[in-house]
Amino acid sequence: MIFRGRVVQGWIGEICGKVLITKSKISFLGDVDLNTGKIVGTDLDIKGERISSKIFIFQEGRGSTAGSNVIYGLSRGGLAPKLIATRRAELITISGAIFGGVPMISNIDEKIFNFLDNGNEAKAYIRDNEACVEEVSEGQNVPF
């Protein structure tokens, strides 16, 4: 199944990586450690996971507006996700992604939250100006 969204920060070719996915909203300041890329937010289901090199999918940014500087800093430190995908085109996350050069999708199809799990392999590409995310796996993925 292909999940589509809008391109915020484009990229060339295919991005492949492991999925890190949560239905939660993320305040990059407070929920993510700038120095390690680890999720430290205590009320998050993905606490303890690292966002670095992942295809990081979440609802949207929330909380601190300095979150954009944290995303930027993660990128400079080589700790940014390979790709960020969110439901909403939220400004804090967008500004961090664009300044940090982190590929980003917004308005991602919300079905993605029911179909993809943490650890799935996925790939992202741009086709006809639309961003696409697809699972890469052998065998069928039964979503329930």
Partner: peptide, 16 residues
Amino acid sequence: VAGVSYRTVGDPTLHL
């Protein structure tokens, strides 16, 4: 303009 405290934004924003 937010993103001023060295504690929260660190060296990357300083250099930027």
